[in-house]
């Protein structure tokens, strides 16, 4: 579906993550299809945004890519290795190049470890010999890289502000020189004025270190700002995949359009002229995903085809793919 050119760093093919439940409906075991057959590729040095509302499977997708959760089916090809298939004992050496940054800097840092000890743990995990002065030097370097003062290394997480903690989380992720970082809602717990600082830091680091990001967030404006390409997820499916500049001008899927119109913008005049599409109802429970197009019960454009047939992601423009029968 996507062109497989030389720059591709990571390729996700037909990824499925199913969770079995104990629930039975009509004697049949109910399976939660958290991620249901998604495919995309991430190019080297780009930022790939995954957006969607809670429960759409964006975090599960991110975790399955790093194999924090075992995928049910599909391939995640990274530099010739299929992360989804390699034996567990080999995964550790690959995973060093793939890091994860979490939403809540409060709960992703051990409150009983000092900043230095948090960083040291990540620095020495490559199992090479490090002298203590080397470790100290590297820790200071990492702190400076994320805009923290090296004297902070004696502090504990509770002595830091939310923004500083998120910077520390980033420093820890950078410790083993990763190539790809999966950022799971890295700025949504931060205040507005701090959010911009962290977003700029992400962009700066990308330029400096040539990083590739998979940026998972629910805030369309943030993803729109940082990502080069965006995939919109709904109930475990990618419903639209496009260049981020297309999002505002030329989105085609009715869900993307509704999502966009639901986000209020700061621009006062723009806001006054905008048409609002109000979706009816709520996201259906993943236990009872509707037949056909997952969005059809809430879709203003749904026809009888939508109730029967699940639309495939197909090309609707340059680098633009939409999964809709009548876009």
């Amino acid at each position: 579906m996507l062109e497989n050119n030389a720059e591709t760093l990571l390729e996700v093919k037909g990824l499925k993550v199913y969770f079995p439940t104990k629930l039975k409906i009509n004697g049949e075991q109910v399976i939660v299809k958290a991620v249901d057959d998604i495919s995309f590729s991430v190019k080297k040095g780009e930022t790939f945004g995954l957006v969607g509302e809670s429960g759409c499977g964006k975090t599960t997708a991110g975790k399955a890519i790093l194999r924090v959760i075992n995928p049910t089916e599909g391939n995640v090809v990274y530099e010739g290795h299929d992360i989804a298939k390699v034996p567990m004992r080999e995964i550790k050496s690959i995973r060093r190049e793939l890091q994860l940054i979490f939403q809540d800097p409060y709960s992703s840092l051990d409150p009983r470890q000092s900043v230095f000890s948090i960083l040291k743990e990540a620095i020495v995990c490559d199992r090479k010999r490090h002298s203590s002065s080397e470790i100290k030097e590297r820790a200071d370097e990492l702190l400076r890289l994320v805009g923290l003062d090296p004297f902070m290394s004696d502090r504990y997480p509770h002595e830091m502000s939310g923004g500083q903690r998120q910077r520390l989380g980033i420093a820890r992720a950078l410790a083993c020189n990763p190539k790809l970082i999966v950022c799971d809602e890295p700025v949504s717990a931060l205040d507005v004025s701090i959010q911009a600082q962290i977003i700029n830091l992400f962009e700066e680091l990308q330029k400096k270190l040539g990083l590739t990001y998979i940026f998972i967030a629910h805030d369309l404006a943030v993803v729109r700002h940082i990502a080069d390409r965006i995939a919109v997820m709904y109930l475990g499916n990618i419903v639209e995949l496009m260049d981020s500049c297309e999002l505002f001008k030329n989105s085609q899927h009715p869900y993307t359009k509704a999502l966009l119109s639901a986000v209020p913008t700061v621009d006062y005049y723009e806001e006054k002229n905008r048409k609002r599409i109000l979706l009816e109802g709520e996201i259906p429970s993943p236990l009872r995903t509707p037949k056909g197009c997952p969005f059809h019960p809430r879709c203003p454009k749904a026809t009888s085809v939508c109730k029967e047939q699940k639309p495939e992601l197909r090309k609707t423009g340059e680098n633009h793919f939409t999964a809709c029968h009548n876009p």
Binding site: V192, Q195, L220, R224, V263, V266
Partner: peptide
């Protein structure tokens, strides 16, 4: 504050 929020149509 206004300059630090990302805008959809930027």
């Amino acid at each position: 504050l206004l300059k630090s929020v990302p805008k959809l149509e930027e």
